[in-house]
Amino acid sequence: MRCEHPPGSGDACVTAILDVRDLTKVYGDTTALDNVTLSVEEGALFGLLGPNGSGKTTMIKSLTGQVRPSGGSATVLGRDVVADPVGVRSQVGIIPEQETPPSFLTSEEYLHLVGAIRKIPDIEEQMTWWFEYLEFGEKRDVLCKDLSRGTRQKLMFAQAFLHRPVLALIDEPLINFDPIMQEKVKDFLADYVKKGNTIFISTHILEIAEEICSGFAVLHKGKLLSTGRVADVTEGGMHLGDYFLSLVRAGGHV
């Protein structure tokens, strides 16, 4: 990725895989994102935290070109999300907040569709691996609309990682999973990052964020309240949850 600093300028060059500058998104009279500036390093498991309605989903949608920012800019993997949304989406994996696989396709057909559009050569092996890993192979011939929420979420996980993206953006990754599946998915995410990939998740489950994330940002009413490394908060003996609550409570009175 491009380095923000000229070579030899002294500063260590941190490669930002995701770079957000003064991003603003206004829906009618709601400001969902308010001048947010944020950057995520390569290899991070980054958690975007915030209460309901704070703008997390809007951030993920803006970063993947699904909504058009009202102001500011964002680059993902060096591509501008406004100028080249399709280019961004071809590189990254996305799991949206609402798991909406096409109703009338079976799980298997949906993954085939994704494989065809993303031109994944080893789609069969990938698919088999995911059916086995997330234990939903027996649902491969069931229509998506007849799947349970958890199974739909599994399917959305599989579709996002089929092409082994270097960056995955996941809106609330664990919310529909049972505890066993949650462990499995957490392991997968940790492992995926270890291989040098980057993961950007949004969540309001702070224990999970504290457990798996390396970096974090806190949004509140569309404003960025804080961003940093999880370790910097927890090293001081504080839980991310307490830190978050104190921030949001203070932020709420601004």
Partner: peptide, 17 residues
């Protein structure tokens, strides 16, 4: 009528595609 852009929005497809 049975289609929304939702599922496509995760894929490298534009509206025009």
């Amino acid at each position: 009528m049975f289609d929304s852009f939702g599922p496509y929005a995760c894929l490298p497809l534009g509206v025009a595609d």
